[in-house]
Design a protein around this nucleic acid. Structure first.
Length: 572
RNA sequence: CGGGGUAUAGCCUAGUGGCUAAGGCGCCUGCUUUGGGAGCAGGAAAUCGCAGGUUCGAGUCCUGCUACCCCGACCA
């Protein structure tokens, strides 16, 4: 590519709206431009990088027997009604009507469409396994798009869906995909960890996220300092279990006046008692059923664990009216003792052994002292529904959990029969008996992976591309454009490198040296080949390695082989 | 959806009710310069987010709306 012809523009100044390095740098390097909140134009440099990333993904998936398809982005509501998700997916699903008034949505994910397609074609166990993938733009009307490509509304995703005869076969597929993802992110030159993950709305009961470690990551990951255990904080377990309290020390209930003190902090301050002495009582609406959730005052309720525990599709805080109906008091004074209406109670392990705890009295401006599990109330279920935190004990060994920030670039799910059952995706087994296909689904945020690579690999001057996904592997920089010899050497070298199959750019603009250097550093070409009049007199050129800043002079004749070798080494 | 903020040329900004809306980056022309975003001279480019209002006079004050950003809630 001749840079004089490249569709892009670099900027010295950082746009105010860009907050994190990848967004700032992609914008400054002329890779992306925002069209609307969370919706971006991808310029040639970005497209080139994405193409390489997609090529790696395709190669690794095809190695595992996956086949590429392309499914529609606009999807009829009927399929979503069939899976049940039309009802509970929420406003993140962008719904539209066609001219006839029929309901459609922009695909945020494709379980419905792919399951529908497969069931039309699936007849016999002999056809399986199938693993279909696509690379496509998804649309999710995110509540708060942010950080450039990290969390857009429209974003490029690779999604794959596997269909197997039974659970055992599906788990083999799952492992294959796990391995494929490991290979993909390794080839991209990323430092990442695969962690245990929650399954959220998509369902299923086994999932791993691939998290690129970076300071700006939105996700919190906990990992053990002794063993291999690592998990998203939404899922992370720690050594907690049901305990016994000292039954000889129970005190009598006592109602106290706590005017205006709603939060644990406020009441703790008012009563001069520590937060862990409180019983946090929160009313949730879980799949339309109100549920009282109890946890020790200094811990947070992990809604993701709660959702998994209940096998629920949705978990939301109850509104004030619901709270009043149930407790007879306004929000902030709920407790498990003396409720107006009976409802299901879910408690965290932490409350089972809490002695003489304080909770809301189900009466405005009153709390109840010395509330004890077993004597004063019982829960329908006691489980681990709290967030683990750094410093907690590992659930598997004697180690301690430590925390990292991560960018979720990929996730693999074992789905089971959630969708094949809802949508009757079946086949006939050896005995002629109808069986449900067992599914898995596997996503990679392609644009997000590109952004994550930049988050992990940049410096004050710009991007430092891993060679495998660099828009161009090398740039040739003729410095003195008024010197025929310099220009000609650049042209010749450019041609030679291209002929050698190297992805090369030639900065043939009439610009000064400093300008070209700054641009090259910003765009982040892994190698810069500098053609200057001075060194050319000795028949040498200067090669700069972006990653290390190292510069070396090489004879003209050795440049191509040096570049080839460098690329080879970096990619492996 | 709650809280906060911003909106002036492609980008970053100045503009305190008063003359023709100012500067930097970038862009065009010419000269000069040629190893880390050069210099000089000239030039193009703005419906001051939109709609109302107050005023002799509004980029500036008021009201409403919209868009965008940040924090939170939310997030296969």
């Amino acid at each position: 590519m001749r840079i004089s012809q490249l569709f892009y523009q670099t900027l010295k100044e950082v746009p105010r709206d860009a907050q994190i390095p990848s967004h700032q740098l992609m914008f400054r390097a002329g890779m992306i431009q925002q069209l609307a909140s969370g919706i971006y134009n991808y310029l040639p440099l970005a497209r080139k990088s994405l193409n390489k990333l997609e090529a790696i993904i395709r190669e690794e998936l095809e190695k595992k027997g996956c086949q590429e398809v392309l499914l529609p982005m606009v999807q009829p509501s009927e399929l979503w009604e069939e899976s049940g998700r039309w009802g509970y997916y929420g406003p993140e699903l962008l719904r539209l009507k066609d001219r006839k008034g029929n309901d459609f949505c922009l695909g945020p994910t494709h379980e419905e469409v792919v399951t529908d397609m497969v069931r039309r074609n699936l007849k016999s166990y002999k056809q399986l396994p199938w693993n279909l993938f696509q690379v496509q733009s998804k649309f999710r009307d995110e509540v708060r798009p942010r950080f450039g490509l990290m969390r857009g509304r429209e974003f490029i995703m690779k999604d794959a869906y596997s269909f197997d005869v039974d659970e055992e076969a599906s788990k083999v597929t799952y492992k294959k995909m796990y391995d494929a993802y490991t290979a993909i992110f390794n080839r991209c030159g990323l430092e990442f960890r695969a962690v245990d993950a929650a399954t959220g709305n998509i369902g299923g009961d086994m999932s791993h996220e691939f998290q690129v470690l970076a300071k700006s990551g939105e996700d919190l990951i906990l990992s053990c300092d002794k063993c291999d255990y690592a998990a998203n904080v939404e899922k992370a377990l720690t050594k907690r279990s049901e305990g016994k309290m000292d039954a000889s020390a129970l005190s009598a209930n006592e109602k106290v006046h706590t005017p205006g003190s709603r939060t644990i902090e406020e009441v703790a301050e008012f009563l001069k008692l520590p937060a862990n002495n409180f019983l946090k009582s929160i009313i949730y609406v879980i799949d339309e059923e109100p549920v009282l959730v109890l946890i020790q005052g200094d811990l947070e309720i992990n809604e993701s664990k709660l959702q998994t525990l209940m096998g629920a599709n949705s978990v939301a805080l109850a509104d004030d009216k619901t709270v009043r109906d149930i407790t007879g008091a306004s929000t902030g004074f709920a407790g498990p003792v003396g409720l107006k209406k009976k409802l299901r109670i879910i408690a965290d392990y932490s409350v089972s052994h809490g002695l003489n705890m304080v909770c809301g009295a189900n009466e405005d401006d009153h709390h109840l002292l010395n509330v004890n599990y077993g004597r004063d109330y019982i829960a329908d279920q006691i489980s681990d529904i709290s967030f683990a935190a750094a410093g907690d004990s590992c659930s598997l060994c004697e180690g301690t959990l430590e925390e990292h920030r991560g960018i979720e670039v990929g996730q693999v799910f074992f789905l089971g029969t959630k969708y094949s059952e809802a949508m009757k995706c079946t086949y006939l087994d050896k005995d002629g008996k109808e069986q449900l296909a067992v599914m898995g689904c596997y996503g990679i945020g392609v644009g997000r992976t590109m952004a994550a690579a930049i988050e992990q690999h940049h410096d004050d001057d710009g991007i430092i591309w891993p060679v495998a996904i660099a828009p161009y592997e090398v740039v040739v920089l003729p410095l003195q454009m008024n010197k025929e010899e310099v220009v000609q050497t650049g042209e010749d070298l450019y041609k030679k490198l291209k002929d050698a199959g190297i992805d090369v750019a030639l900065d043939d603009r009439e610009e000064r040296a400093g300008f070209k250097f700054k641009d090259a550093d910003l765009i982040g070409y892994p190698l810069q080949i500098v053609i200057g009049a001075r060194s050319l007199e000795n028949g040498e050129l200067e090669v700069k390695i972006r990653k290390t800043g190292e510069k070396k002079n090489l004879p003209l004749g050795e440049i191509v082989s040096f570049v080839q070798e460098f690329i080879q080494n970096e990619k492996s």
